[in-house]
Simulated assay, not measured.
Amino acid sequence: MSRRSMEGQVVVVTGAARGIGALLARKLAARGARLALIGLEPDELKKVSESLDVDSDWWEADVTDHVAMARVAGEVAERFGKVDVTVANAGVAAGGPFMDSDPDAWRRVVEVNLIGGAVTGRAFLPLLAASRGYFLQVASLAALTPAPMMTAYCASKSGVEAFAHALRAEVGHKGVRVGVGYLSWTDTDMVRGADEDDVMRELRQRLPWPSNKTYPLGPAVDRIVAGIERRSAHVYAQWWLRGMQSIRGYLPGLIGTVGRREMRRFEPRLAAGGTHRGLVGAGGQADENARTSS
């Protein structure tokens, strides 16, 4: 599919205060897109918006809040007159054994990643239908393969992948294209936060190549931008993720066997309470702060 010019297109990005969302906004702005930024950190959102040499604005909102997101969608439509692309990027993560996990943190990962993507779609799909636009749901390698100590994240990302595939079939006749974005471990606050946990970091390092590497943010976002320009059904932020699609059916059995061995290795350290129980990274902290203050 040929690339479309982003000049003058209005793009909504959730989770835009930092990491993937912030850099995506900057790279889309460099191509002439107008940006509507949504997130939980007003100071960071303002900095990103002010750094863009295009028409842009920002909104503080929790993507799991139907009322707030509907209000934001109405204000974005009033501010820009249309929406051409919406990127459901907001996400949080928590790690550690499920049996010892914090129930509130576990639930919140699913709420933000899965419910938040659906709430974002519900709010902006009428505008995308009017413009015959594009909805990109950011998923993960975690949607393609299970991973021990990441039950909430894997469940949520598998869920958003299925949500996007089902949605594509529903809205295609309206002229709306729906894509799923896949990323492996990418150099963001979330991944760096997870790596602060010694067990999580070592477990990840023991994964087979190339899934044991942390990839630079810039090239990953460049691939996402290219996918948006093409309005692709599948967007792969690292080259090798496309090949995972053909073998994903074999991965649960393989991970089940290998994971049993690795978890046995780490069991003594886990029993000593050596794993972080809450949301990880600066974005996770921002989410916890916002919920505490509200």
Score class of each variant (00 low, 15 high):
Ser140Lys: 04
Phe163Asn: 01
Ala169Gln: 14
Met149Cys: 10
Ala147Glu: 13
Leu167Tyr: 04
Cys154Glu: 03
Arg132Leu: 03
Lys157Glu: 12
Val160Gln: 00
Val138Asp: 00
Leu141Thr: 06
Val138Cys: 09
Pro126Asn: 00
Thr145His: 04
Val191Leu: 12
Arg122Cys: 12
Gly133Pro: 00
Ala142Cys: 08
Arg122Val: 14
Gly172His: 09
Gln137Phe: 12
Leu128Trp: 00
Asp187Asn: 09
Gly193Gln: 07
Lys174Phe: 15
Pro148Cys: 08
Ser184Cys: 13
Tyr182Ile: 04
Asp189Ser: 15
Glu161Tyr: 11
Ala143Ile: 09
Gln137Arg: 10
Ser140Gln: 03
Arg201Thr: 08
Asp197Val: 08
Arg201Tyr: 11
Arg177His: 10
Asp187Arg: 11
Ala194Glu: 14
Gly193Arg: 06
Arg122Trp: 14
Leu167Ala: 08
Ser184Trp: 09
Asp198Tyr: 02
Gly159Pro: 03
Thr120Ile: 09
Ala143Cys: 08
Leu144Phe: 08
Gly133His: 00
Gly181Val: 01
Ser158His: 15
Gly159Cys: 07
Ala169Leu: 15
Pro148Glu: 04
Val180Pro: 03
Asp195Tyr: 15
Pro126Ser: 09
Thr120Arg: 07
Thr188Arg: 08
Ala152Ser: 10
Leu127Ser: 06
Leu125Asn: 02
Thr186Ile: 13
Gly179Met: 05
Gln137Lys: 03
Thr188Lys: 09
His173Phe: 13
Ala123Phe: 06
Pro126Gly: 03
Leu128Glu: 00
Cys154Thr: 11
Val178Pro: 00
Ser156Trp: 06
Val171Cys: 03
Cys154Gly: 07
Tyr182Lys: 02
His165Asn: 13
Arg192Asn: 02
Ser184Asn: 13
Lys174Glu: 15
Ala130Glu: 14
Leu141Ser: 08
Ala155Trp: 11
Asp197Gln: 10
Glu202Ala: 12
Val138Asn: 01
Ser158Ala: 15
Ala166Lys: 06
Ala129His: 11
Leu127His: 04
Glu202Ile: 06
Ala166Val: 12
Val160Met: 10
Ser158Val: 14
Met149Tyr: 08
Ala147Asp: 12
Asp187Phe: 09
Gly159Ser: 06
Tyr182Ala: 02
Thr145Pro: 03
Arg192Ala: 00
Gly175Met: 01
Arg168Tyr: 09
Met200Thr: 11
Phe135Asp: 01
Ser184Leu: 11
Glu202Tyr: 05
Leu183Phe: 15
Ala152Thr: 05
Glu196Thr: 14
Asp197Cys: 10
Val171Thr: 08
Phe124Ser: 02
Ala155Phe: 07
Asp197Ile: 05
Met149Ile: 07
Ala142His: 07
Ala129Phe: 12
His165Gly: 10
Leu144Gly: 01
Ala162Gln: 06
Pro126Tyr: 09
Gly172Tyr: 12
Glu161Gln: 13
Ala164Trp: 05
Ala155Tyr: 09
Phe135Val: 03
Gly193Lys: 04
Ser158Ile: 12
Gly172Thr: 11
Ala162Leu: 13
Pro148Thr: 04
Phe163Asp: 04
Ala194Leu: 15
Met200Arg: 06
Arg201Cys: 13
Ala129Glu: 15
Tyr134Asn: 03
Lys157Leu: 08
Ala155Gln: 11
Leu183Trp: 11
Met190Cys: 07
Thr186Cys: 06
Leu167Lys: 02
Met149Ser: 05
Arg192Glu: 03
Leu127Ala: 05
Glu202Gly: 07
Pro148Ser: 02
Gly133Lys: 01
